[in-house]
Amino acid sequence: MRDARILAWVLADPSRAAQLRPHQWTAMLTIAQAERLLGTLAHRLAGLDVPETAARVLDRARRAAETDRRQALWEAEMARQALAPLGLPVLLLKGTAYLAAGMDAGRGRLVGDLDILVPHDRMDDAEAALLAAGWEWVKQDDYDDAYYRDHMHELPPLIHKARDRMIDVHHTILPLTARARPDAAALIGDAVDLGNGLSTLCPEDMVIHAVLHLFADGDLSGGLRNLWDIDRMLREFAESDGFWDRLLARSRHHKVTRYVSRALRLSHHIFETPVDPYLAWQGRRGDLFYTGRLLARNGWGQDTAKLLRFAFYLRSHWIRMPPLMLARHLFTKWRKGHQPIR
């Protein structure tokens, strides 16, 4: 199997699994595991006739995702209790938000860390409250700590000493050094209350955050899963009238239309997502590189397209930092023996 296309093909339309031969099943399951999409695949294939061993593999993944879901929601509740005395509602981001809001994107999805959004001027209070409630600093050096505090859009990661789960406290959805500057106040101002002390971004902002997380916040590792989140959200939200207009307006407001447009095209191309043609037509150079990078995994689960991966790694830094700062950062990391590629 040359790339991850087979997985995308079946995720988009699970009935296609009936056509798979054993070696294709093997490749698809392995790729799904490597892309952290096996639980998602298990949910998509639920109720369909699959070979016995595949059913066993999918059953494991379904159980794993269920355990993960329970832990993720419990972690959100713990954060809510810790921040409640401050009068800070817990605004959930990414995976935990999808789960808490019962969205399609959450079905079978694994959630690593708890990500929350807090107003910039309340970051110190939030940090103190979390430290008092049992979270502690992940051990790291002064450079990393200072880097987070000066340039990033989140606190250095905190981990709970008893439950061993990580929390990322964000104050906006892109690093401060990135060229685009989303409107953080609007993100918080238009949040949707879930009624249990938890809230999420509004639908359009959820899509935009997923898009920025995919393109502007890293080297596209785990990109296929992030793109799948986008596909699910677009399909689910598009059912409400005027969604595409609101998404266009909101993208312009945050000055990220270019990114959103590209995500729509890639999602359409890889997962056959129905998308708004006008919004998807905002400049399309380089899509092939993105497609190649997102699908860069073979049937053994190995990373492929090493050069393209490295190019995207460089790019992730380039878009994050001005050139001089980038040079200084890479020099510091190199001196510490940092490995550029996982």
């Binding site: 054993p22 070696h23 099943w25 093997t26 399951l29 392995t30 595991q33 070979p51 016995e52 061993t53 595949a54 066993r56 593999v57 494991r60 053994w300 689960g301 190995q302």
Partner: peptide
């Protein structure tokens, strides 16, 4: 060998 030709787990020595 795995019954229907599909293994539960993949291991790689690289």
């Amino acid at each position: 060998k795995p019954a229907d030709g599909i293994p539960d787990f993949t291991v790689r020595l690289e």
